[in-house]
Design a protein around this nucleic acid. Structure first.
Length: 301
DNA sequence: GTCCAGGTCGCGC
DNA sequence: GCGCGACATGGA
């Protein structure tokens, strides 16, 4: 059965631009069809029910809409429907206020004004565990390897919505913690990252670590960063990436891509030191990450 | 076969 | 606080 829910994001909002804002759209369980502009994803809701979400944009960036088709078995409860909607809202950051960032972009003029037409919301997963695991899967590996690891996690440990094993939800921490570290490493080829992810899953499943505390807006960014760094497998780059996913843009994920880009654009091809990179975006205040990200994006045309 | 990837850990200094 | 080698895996 299918239930359709419609959302009205605040304008401006660019659905395609948001879906494709970074590589996340290509990582399982997400599927993106560029032709139709549909983002499909299986989701295990809080009730335990597993549904398939098909999300697409409607209208224009000035008068935007989002349509969520929820494919489910049996009746879809109001609670499930609201839960699914909340997850899409989280993924697309529909509650974020980007006005101050847009204002800075306008002051810069072209080409930054392009961003103010509804960009700036970098796609995230429906839950923080998935985002942290995926960020760990981007470290010290090429993009193809990251995609493979995400796909294996979903295939091996995700809940199915129907009989298509290629389309399952991203596993919850409990599913990973339920097997031994050895079995986890055998079933998902994550190399040396496997123990990190298994340990993280175990700490969450046991209740020792509550990721919800990391989403508390009351916590200062330095404190939050410290807590992220305490997770094995999360270093400076990964912490900055997760901070971005949490909506905190004042730290930069200085990795090979960042050094390469800023080196070519600002330092005559020489790879800059970290503080030189930070200096480039210093005057963007709490929006440094977005400034860096769209600097990179705009430079690619 | 060798090198290394959108780094991080654990060590020694 | 900084420099260094090791680290699994698989693509180039």
């Amino acid at each position: 059965m299918m239930t359709t829910v419609r959302l009205r994001p605040a304008a401006p909002f660019d659905f395609r631009g948001t879906a494709r804002s970074h590589g996340w759209v290509a990582l399982a369980p997400n599927r993106w069809d560029d032709e139709s502009g549909f983002l499909t994803r299986v989701e295990r809701l809080s009730s335990g029910n597993v549904v398939r979400l098909q999300v697409t944009g409607e209208g224009t960036s000035r008068k935007p809409g989002i349509r969520i088709d929820i494919e489910h078995r049996g009746r879809l409860t109001r609670r499930d429907s609201e839960n699914a909607t909340a997850r899409v809202t989280h993924m697309f950051r529909l509650d974020d206020d980007l006005k101050p960032f847009y204002s800075l972009c306008r002051k810069r003029g072209a080409p930054w004004t392009k961003v103010t037409r509804g960009l700036g919301r970098l796609l995230r997963s429906s839950n923080l565990f998935e985002d942290i695991v995926k960020v760990i899967c981007t470290t010290n590996i090429q993009w193809g390897g990251t995609k493979k690891m995400a796909a294996q996690l979903v295939e091996q440990f995700g809940d199915a919505c129907d009989d298509d094993p290629a389309q399952q939800a991203f596993p919850g921490a409990e599913a990973i913690a339920a097997v031994s570290a050895a079995e986890f490493a055998r079933r998902v080829k994550m190399g040396y990252r496997a123990p990190y992810v298994h340990e993280l899953a175990g700490r969450i499943a046991s209740g020792e670590l509550d990721l919800a505390t990391l989403e508390d807006r009351g916590m200062s960014t330095p404190e939050l960063r410290k807590r992220l760094l305490a997770i094995k497998g999360v270093g400076g780059y990964a912490a900055a990436s997760v901070l971005m996913l949490l909506g905190r843009y004042d730290d930069l994920p200085i990795d090979s891509v960042c050094r390469d880009f800023t080196g070519r654009k600002y330092f005559g091809g020489r790879s800059p030191k970290d503080d030189k990179v930070r200096g480039l975006y210093e005057d963007w205040g709490e929006w440094k990450f977005l400034a860096y990200w769209y600097d990179l994006w705009l430079s690619r045309g």
